[in-house]
Design a protein around this nucleic acid. Structure first.
Lengths: 325, 325
DNA sequence: ACGTTCTACTAGAACGTTCTAGTTCCTCCT
DNA sequence: AGGAGGAACTAGAACGTTCTAGTAGAACGT
């Protein structure tokens, strides 16, 4: 008992396989009458076209690969929008997860075997060598990080400007003792650190105070504990929402009033920021815009053009973790 | 400029395509000498076998489909373990995401087109009709929920017992005023509610107090605010870690001591519970065990057997949100 | 009546693999 | 000397589609 094929439907309907193919794809070349008849028979037999055979035959697979981090909520948002953005251009999406037990090269290789036409890497940690090796096999585009390579365009939001927005907001509320809990080696961390330095200098706040952090809640919590020991500022700009969440936990459990005593700003506007009762003030990178730009970018690549790097302007979303000093 | 194929490698090496195929699959039938030579040439040309053509030819695709919720951290854990569990049996995994803009039937159809041999549905919300319709097309197995259908086995942990563990723990700490913030219509919510009722009765705590909640942090937070108005118990058992997290936020921000004044227990032992500074006491369903059982189950299905429903026993993980009353 | 153009359809090749059924050629046994 | 058996290799079909190049017949204009 195997799945019915085109041939089964054709036999049953008394027509050629080609005609069934025409009907199933809804392309011109069949009368309305046979169209209805064939469709009914296909339905009755439970026929579902075989994507593999289809793509084998067609030169283009119209399949876009996406690698993402299973445990990064913002990647979830991006993936969701990539599905719809790709569908708008008639592309299917194959996703391949990156996790502690499954590294990026492995995820990339899986997509390559699937014959994706191009791959979008979300927040990739691959170095230039690995990236250019991958780009030799298929068009690659990175999202939410820079690319040093000419062959690999990137779509990201302006991290320096984003952190600048956060600092501007805090300064306008009267804060002058502002600390950045950085992202360590995470993609984008360098830019955000630089953006923080630039903003602090722009406002003449003296030496920029930066403490080592990371992209997880524990990293944020550890940094907050260090700050408690060394002396709290009046405002903290975290590397991302995860980190801000860790910072918040430590502060609130330590009976510090947020935002009365300390203001906290996150980054990403992930579900974490929205859904949490925390109501985190954060910098929003529109997942929808990033996804659309990424899809446009890979389509340009497939078209043989080298798209410009896209740098979107982030927005500040003020919620309830920031207030006047 | 297209990807090199078997034929290209064969031509370059001066052998037949069949021989190259033999070499690439590492099956017996080629001398060590040609094996090395062909592999070198394949490497040089950048040849990567075409998974689609391969699976088209072979009767079995050795491909397992998995649908999961992009925004559910516990699903991330499960997917990660499914990758490795499937690999142990020589199976590849194709994942298909469910999200607000992409419903379950859509995700399932994508996997069907990919010709997966069977599909594992994580925490599916499909009703019996949809489930049995899907099961007619390919073997299906649900994880983390019950299945009413004979055709669809299920792998889950014992939700009633899990909530029982949580209540036992709280009672042993001296609590008698315990509230359950339930999961509404989420998969498994009924069992957990029933488990709470049973445990409360077993300990003779009087009428079970249950307030409506849900599977998100906001739902948990809303429920906590209702509790603040109506009168706090000494302990709260949440539907899952997400919900517990929302409850915690409201409590801590309202200057209530956890666990001094109120104890809180979550469910799932997701990264949320571990990584958060919260150090949530929670009930752990081992993602690894669930994943392995799920893979064993679908393989049995493919073998023509109907595997027994698997109900794993959950474990209580005591961290720092529960204490003596 | 004759071409032209359109519609509805079909035969058969092609996509990149793997499988089946060989064919050589060498070695070993009696 | 005459197989038997095995190792190394190959030709060609097969998987389920879509594509190309066609055919038959109707409709239309002149």
């Amino acid at each position: 008992m195997h799945r019915p094929t085109l041939a089964d439907v054709a036999l049953e309907a008394g027509v050629s396989r080609a005609l069934v193919s025409i009907v199933m794809r809804d392309v011109p070349g069949a009368s309305d009458e046979t169209r209805a008849r064939v469709k009914a028979i296909a339905e009755r037999l439970g026929y579902v076209p075989d994507q593999r055979a289809r793509q084998l035959r067609q030169s283009s697979s119209r399949l876009l690969g996406v690698t993402f981090d299973l445990h990064q909520p913002f990647h979830g948002d991006l993936v969701e929008h990539l599905y719809t953005a790709a569908a708008e251009h008639g592309y299917d999406v194959a996703i391949s997860a990156v996790a502690p037990s499954r590294d990026e090269p492995e995820a990339l290789r899986a997509l390559q075997r699937e014959r994706c036409e191009a791959v979008v890497l979300l927040g990739s940690a691959l170095d230039d060598a690995a990236l250019s090796a991958g780009a030799r096999a298929m068009p690659l585009l990175v999202v939410a990080r820079r690319s040093g390579l000419d062959a690999v365009p990137s779509v990201r939001s302006d991290d320096r400007a984003g952190v600048g927005l956060a600092v501007d907001h805090l300064v306008s509320l009267g804060h002058r003792a502002i600390v950045h809990v950085d992202g360590g080696t995470a993609p984008g961390a360098d830019d955000r650190r630089a953006g923080f330095r630039a903003a602090v200098e722009r406002h003449g706040l003296g030496e920029a105070r930066i403490v080592p952090g990371g992209s997880t809640e524990t990293a944020g919590a550890d940094a907050a504990e260090a700050l408690l020991r060394e002396g709290l500022p009046t405002a903290i700009v975290a590397f991302n929402d995860h980190g801000a969440s860790g910072v918040l936990d430590v502060l609130v459990r330590g009976r510090h009033d947020v935002p009365g005593e300390v203001s906290v700003v996150g980054y990403d506007d992930s579900r974490l920021a929205v859904a949490r009762q925390t109501q985190l003030t954060t910098v929003s990178q529109s997942a929808g815009d990033l996804a659309r730009a990424a899809v446009d970018g890979v389509l340009a690549l497939l078209d043989g053009r080298r798209p410009d790097d896209v740098v979107l302007t982030p927005e500040l979303v003020v919620r309830q973790t920031t207030g006047p000093t």
